[in-house]
């Protein structure tokens, strides 16, 4: 959360909005912001922190853990048409990686801009070559793309 908040300005530059959701009330979000988050991130968390008491939203998104009564760590990338492009769900003790979030958003934005004429291979980073799927590429990916490009 604090990590995403730190990079919020960069996300905004990519036309990305962030919404965080937990089962805590918005009142608790306020106190968490004041007591802790504002001390971790300059200015605190800038995006809306939503309340999902009862896990109704989490249930619909398949991240609500009924036994624990909490939402699991789940991250969804939604495109401008409201379509889910990526899902990442982790159990609570392991945090997410904001750099990977940026990489995926940039990849999805590139693919969308190319109207699907380009695809980003494994480990793609901005600046690295993309693939142009089509009849000519079938069986020829080995010519265009080497595994060391993935790292």
């Amino acid at each position: 959360m604090a990590a995403v908040a730190t990079k919020y300005e960069d996300l905004k530059k990519l036309d990305v909005e962030v919404l965080s959701i937990s089962v805590d009330s918005h009142f608790v979000h306020k106190i968490w912001q004041e007591e802790e988050l504002s001390k971790m991130v300059k200015g605190g968390v800038p995006f809306p922190m939503l309340s999902d008491a009862g896990g109704k939203i989490g249930s619909v998104y398949g991240v609500y853990n009924e036994a624990g009564g909490v939402n699991t760590r789940g991250r969804f990338i939604i495109d401008p048409d409201g379509v889910i492009q990526a899902i990442e769900i982790l159990t609570p003790p392991v945090g997410r990686n904001v750099s990977e979030l940026f990489r995926q958003i940039q990849a999805f934005q590139l693919v969308r801009k190319s109207k699907g004429s380009e695809a980003t291979p494994s480990g793609w980073q901005p600046g690295k070559p993309t693939l142009k799927p089509g009849p000519d590429l079938v069986g020829k990916v080995w010519k265009e793309w080497k595994t060391d490009l993935a790292f």
Binding site: V18, L19, S20, V63, R75, P80
Partner: peptide, 8 residues
């Protein structure tokens, strides 16, 4: 573009 982050 929207990123939704659920957390415990």
């Amino acid at each position: 573009w929207v990123v939704i982050c659920f957390y415990p």
